[in-house]
């Protein structure tokens, strides 16, 4: 009954680290405090040990992760290329919110890490329960992906050296 209490009697706690972190993620931009706490209620907080895989390349993909604290590297285990090293407040794996393609790279915790998982099934539930909020998130997600596409195009347009 704890969540019943939280739902109706307890005021939104802005000092909640999950809410604070989610607020700064572009995908959850422009959400009201109430909406943000609705999203937070659907997310899953997970802890990972150092060197533990968050997911492996080609594994079935179900959703995105936001780093609460710790460090995660995105890497291609076949070629040992490190694409990015991400820290607190960063997010990865958001493409999986939209399609069911397998992971294109591996994610490994390089330090003990606490992550917030937001999965496709949660997004689908949210779209059913609160379509307005679901649409906001989808629009933000499209913005993030569009921005990334634009950047890739610019990279490609650069004359090769």
């Amino acid at each position: 009954m704890k969540s019943l209490y939280q739902n109706y009697f307890k005021k939104n706690d802005n000092s909640d680290p999950i809410l604070k972190t989610l607020k700064n993620v572009p995908i959850f931009e422009n959400l009201s405090d109430k909406e943000l706490s609705d999203v937070a209620r659907l997310t899953h907080e997970r802890t990972y040990k150092k060197d533990e895989h968050v997911f492996k390349k080609l594994a079935p993909a179900e959703g995105m992760y936001v780093i609460l604290d710790g460090e995660v590297k995105i890497t291609d285990s076949d070629s040992d290329t490190i694409f990015a090293t991400l820290g607190s407040g960063d997010f990865f794996g958001e493409l999986a919110l939209l399609d069911e393609e397998p992971r294109s790279a591996s994610a490994i915790a390089t330090l003990p890490a606490r992550l917030i998982g937001f999965f496709r099934t949660d997004l689908l539930t949210l779209m059913k329960r609160s379509p307005e909020l679901g649409n906001k998130i989808l629009l933000n997600l499209s913005r993030v992906l569009g921005e990334r596409l634009r950047r890739t195009n610019q990279e490609l347009a650069k004359p090769s050296q």
């Binding site: 209620r41 899953h44 990972y48 895989h53 997911f55 179900e62 959703g63 999965f119 099934t121």
Partner: peptide, 19 residues
């Protein structure tokens, strides 16, 4: 959500899909 909390990290995404 509480049920998912008990799932090992390794099986998290597969478990979610199963549910």
């Amino acid at each position: 959500r509480s049920l998912v909390r008990f799932m090992p990290n390794k099986y998290l995404e597969v478990g979610l899909r199963m549910i």
